[in-house]
Design a protein around this nucleic acid. Structure first.
Lengths: 154, 154
DNA sequence: CCAATTTAAGTTGACTTCAACATATCTGTC
DNA sequence: GACAGATATGTTGAAGTCAACTTAAATTGG
């Protein structure tokens, strides 16, 4: 071990890094939901995405990306398997032809009807941690975390 | 909107899903660390991985995967870019030839010496949320996937 | 010692994630 | 109504993520 990189630094990161703890917890909880939802044929991310489309007006791609806190190009990629399976449609917005409206198909709705009880049960089986408020703070923290084109403007 | 899938379900998920909140926070915080570490040439996951190798004994692949709360095969994939860059080495364990020992190279240590101050500063700039205990609870819940929150030899 | 079992990793395929770059469309100004 | 800037999205390339399957080595039971 070099003296400019003592073991204490390793322990400091392990014990205090919010990023590491978040990633680990997100992976662990994500795996658990993936496992529960597997019989339905959805991953946890696909479930979140589909359920976010269940609303009176078909939302635009960018709005859904912001809601999910993900890069819009990630959402574009995530849409493809679901569109291929016929669970949602991507169609141009008539009032603004740059925009894309995302809508559930009847098949997508059917799958959600099956998935929602599984989701409820899986959530209920988690330990009763009280984290949502703190987690929400983190999502909003960066001035333009998820919404800015190419992370450049500001 | 179908009556077996009312908008209330959408709101229920949005407002109460620990999985969704975790993924969103993990993405947002991960992006922030990625941005801060970019000048050093590391992503947040690569930083966590490399720092976990900074210890007197080179750990085995499986132990590191447990420490990071990720699938072993994910770790195998994550090693490749770092090995290619000469930041770590993967070598067979002499005492158990199934095992692989992961070790930092001097170049990897040099990079960590640069990265640690950036990591400290980025962590200090986050809002002072108190989440680590709750997050650690979640990692331990899955019977076989997760490891113990500390990294020392289970 | 040998066969069965367990354990540690590798491989493959599908999907997820994001930055950088590129295109199409809208809005405001003149 | 052309033009500059802003907005919404697409494309590409590299990496991250995991389940299912496979291979290699250690351990256990006769």
């Amino acid at each position: 071990m070099r003296e400019d990189l003592p073991i204490d630094v390793t322990h400091e990161v392990r014990d205090s890094c919010l990023c590491l703890h978040l990633q680990r917890a997100a992976r662990a909880v994500g795996r658990r939901f993936d496992e529960a939802l597997r019989p339905v044929g959805l991953s946890h991310g696909q479930f979140s995405l589909l359920i976010s489309l269940n609303r009176p007006e078909a939302p635009r791609l960018g709005d859904v990306a912001r809601l999910l806190g993900m890069d819009r190009t990630t959402l574009t990629a995530n849409l493809k398997p679901l569109e291929r399976r016929g669970l949602l449609t991507v169609s141009p917005d008539p009032s603004d032809r740059r925009g894309r409206r995302l809508a559930l198909t009847p098949d997508g709705e059917d799958l959600l009807v099956q998935a929602v009880p599984v989701w409820r049960q899986t959530l209920a089986q988690l330990p009763p941690v009280d984290l949502l408020g703190g987690l929400a703070q983190l999502v909003g923290m960066a001035p333009e975390t998820a919404g800015t084109p190419d992370g450049k403007a500001g």
